[in-house]
Simulated scan of single mutants.
Amino acid sequence: MALVGLFSAKDKEFARKVDLLASVVEAHGGQVVSRHVQRRGVSSGGADKMGDPLSRRTLLSPGRAREVADACRQGGVGVVVFVNPLTDHQRAVLTDMFGCLVLSGDDLR
């Protein structure tokens, strides 16, 4: 499995949140093979937009989304789990883009 998360640049706990998701995945019998973090800074619209996703379709920047997709294909990843909640539309777009099942950590709790 691959883990993915979008976090504000102000979020100092992002690594702990990814580690927590990894422990949930492992408790369900999954093996984490890669982790991908997208940090959202203040340079693209100010602090008021830091909580907004970079893309409403994918939550990620185009470059990070390609990075995750490439890692999934090269590593034979069967499931990607996002730290962030996902809409049904985002799941469909990401599943198509990554070529594997896409879940949110909320699905595992």
Rank of each mutant, 00 (worst) to 15 (best):
S8F: 04
G46A: 01
V79F: 03
Q90L: 10
P85L: 08
S8H: 12
V80E: 08
D48K: 12
A92Y: 00
S61I: 05
R109K: 07
F7W: 04
L6G: 09
T58W: 12
F98Y: 14
R109D: 04
G75Q: 14
A71Y: 05
V80R: 10
C72F: 13
G5R: 07
L3A: 10
V25C: 11
D106W: 10
G41Q: 05
R35P: 01
R66L: 11
V68M: 09
D11S: 07
A2D: 14
A27K: 12
D11R: 10
D52F: 10
E13I: 10
F82N: 02
R64T: 15
K17H: 14
S104L: 04
G99V: 02
M50Q: 13
D106R: 15
D88V: 06
V24G: 00
S23I: 01
G41C: 04
A65F: 04
L103F: 05
G99H: 03
L6Q: 04
D11M: 07
K12R: 14
Q31H: 09
V24L: 08
G63K: 12
Q38E: 15
V24P: 00
L59F: 06
E67K: 06
V83R: 09
V83N: 12
F7N: 13
K10F: 12
L54N: 04
V25G: 00
D52K: 14
Q90I: 09
L101Y: 03
D107K: 07
M97G: 03
K49R: 14
L103W: 10
F82V: 07
G41L: 09
G105Y: 09
R35L: 08
V18T: 09
A22H: 00
L59A: 08
E67I: 01
M97L: 15
R64M: 15
D96V: 01
H89R: 15
T87Q: 02
V83W: 06
V18C: 06
V33R: 02
S8M: 12
A69P: 06
V77I: 15
G99Q: 07
H36F: 14
R56N: 08
Q38K: 03
M97Y: 08
F98D: 07
L86N: 05
L6K: 02
L20V: 01
V81C: 11
G51C: 02
Q90R: 05
S43D: 14
H28Q: 07
S43Y: 13
G76I: 09
S43P: 07
R66V: 02
D70P: 04
C100P: 13
V24E: 05
R40V: 14
A71I: 02
S44H: 11
S34W: 00
G63W: 03
A2K: 02
V83F: 10
